[in-house]
Amino acid sequence: MALPFKGGVVVCADSRTSTGSYVANRVSDKLVQLSDNIYACRSGSAADTQALTDYVHYYLNSWSLDTGRQPTVKTAAHLMRRLIYNNKDQLQAGVIIAGWDAVHGGSVYTITLGGSCLELPFATGGSGSIFVAGLLDAEFRQEMTQEEARTLAKKACAHAMTRDGSSGGVIRTVAISSEGVDRDYTPGNELPFGPSAPF
C-alpha cells in the first residue's frame, strides 16, 4: 500500500511470497526502488513484477540520462502502465507506483491487472487489501505527518497479515520525501495490530 503524507509518501508491504500453500520466502522485499525518489509495491506474480520493475528501472535511468533530471512519479507510472497494458494477456501484475518529485510533490498511482493507471489519494493492493479497505477509509487523512502515515500503514498492514492467509511475515515500510528515503522494518512478532488481537 502507499499512503501520502505532508511532503511525501509512505509505501508499505508484508513479506510473504507463496507457491501454492508453501511459503517460498517469509522475508521477501516487495518494495522496489525505481529511482532515487520513486518506489514500486509489487503484488501478483513475483516473476512478472520483478521483470516489470527491472524494465521500468532501466527506462527511468535512461530518461534521467536524456533529460538530466529526476523522473516524475507520473512518468514511472506511465511506463509501467504501458508495459502491463501491452502484455496483459501474459502478465499477472498489480503494481502501485509512489514517490516524491519536484513537479508534483508526493503522489500515488495504481496500475490494475488490465493495465489502467489511476492516480489516487492513497492506494492498497494485493490479496490482503480487501481486509483493510474499511480501516483505511475511516482513518486515512490528507496532510498527515510522516510518522502518522507510517503508523497507519503499519497498522493496516498488520491487520491484513492477520486476517489474510496469503499475507504475513514482517512489515517493511519506506518513507519517501524531498529529503530522500527512510527504510523501516518491523519483525513478525511485533506487529502493531490492536486494540484487540483476535489470535
Binding site: D66, T75, H78, L79
Partner: peptide, 11 residues
Amino acid sequence: EQYGSKIPPGV
C-alpha cells in the same frame, strides 16, 4: 506516448 509527459525542449 512513451513517458506520459511533454518532451523537454532541450532534449
